[in-house]
């Protein structure tokens, strides 16, 4: 009995192995339709997020889909762990990081191919509407949350280190939603976050306000692995064609919070 069981198990494992390698073969065989895997932060509205219908959507996702349609590629979406995004890109889990990603000098220094910037971003501070904080100076000695791996965090460690030093402490959370949960639950006094994210959150949830101070200017771009210049070129050309034929503007209309800062539309 035991022997038969072992035999069956062995057969099952063999089948699994064979079918796995088989699938891989067919994947590389049908190279006519290229598959492009887009790496996104699945919790980053309005650029990339899980839509009402359970599929990923957002400005970046729609543009990428349109670009892939234009190129005749099949698009797949891969949700990355934002603070490990570049490692996941390097390990071929996705072909690009395209999700409201701020271009950092350190990325270029590390050899990643970065597309032309497509969005002008600033950082803002979100506080509770009834908190009485009206400027970043009011937050001296207070707790401020920021999402780990975002440009906001980089800024607080870099250009805005002086401001960060006046805060009581900077708390890093693994998603911006958790930052807002901390704020809602009074565990922190403010959230330091990208402007479009703050705008869409404050619009959807009552009781929050954005401090009228734009901190740190930066730009969004798409990151590719080092050596993928050709891929970056193809995508950039496809996006340029979308701008040309009006598809880009049409998609942008759906996202009023960000439309004013889109570089391709406001040149």
């Amino acid at each position: 009995m035991k022997k038969i069981f072992a035999l069956i198990m062995a057969l099952v494992m063999l089948t699994v192995l064979v079918s796995c390698s088989g699938a891989k073969d067919s994947g590389s065989g049908s190279a006519e339709k290229k598959t492009f895997i887009m790496g996104i932060d699945p919790e980053y509205p309005p650029f990339s997020f899980l839509g009402e219908d359970g599929n990923y959507t957002g400005f970046d996702v729609e543009i990428c889909q349109a670009a892939c349609d234009y190129l005749g590629w099949e698009m797949k979406i891969f949700g990355v762990n934002w603070d490990e995004k570049l490692i996941q890109l390097d390990s071929n889990e996705c072909d690009c990081i395209w999700s409201g990603m701020t271009i950092l000098d350190s990325m270029k220094e590390a050899g990643y191919v970065i597309s032309k910037p497509y969005y002008d971003n600033t950082q803002v501070i979100v506080v509770k509407a009834d908190s009485g904080y009206n400027s970043s100076a009011d937050l001296a000695g207070k707790l401020v949350a920021v999402q780990l791996g975002t440009s906001g965090e980089a800024l607080l460690n870099g250009d805005l280190a002086d401001l960060a030093a006046t805060f009581g402490d900077v708390i890093t959370a693994d998603s911006f939603l958790k930052c807002f949960t901390e704020l809602a639950g009074n565990a922190v006094d403010a959230v330091f976050v990208d402007m479009p994210v703050a705008a869409s959150y404050a619009a959807e949830h009552e009781g929050y306000k954005i401090i009228d101070e734009q901190l740190g200017a930066e730009q969004y771009g798409i990151a590719f692995r080092s050596g993928d210049e050709a891929l970056c070129d193809e995508i950039e050309k496809a996006v340029a064609a979308l701008v040309e034929n009006g598809t880009y503007a049409k998609i942008a209309e759906k996202y009023p919070d960000i439309v004013n800062n889109l570089l391709f539309l406001n040149d």
């Binding site: 603070d83 350190s106 590390a110 949350a145 780990l148 791996g149 460690n157 870099g158 708390i171």
Partner: peptide, 18 residues
């Protein structure tokens, strides 16, 4: 839950330094 223990700080450094 955003508790700043050793690994969290490691991740922060990994990020800022790529």
């Amino acid at each position: 839950v955003s508790y700043q223990e050793m690994f969290t700080i490691g991740k922060q450094i990994a990020n800022s330094q790529t």
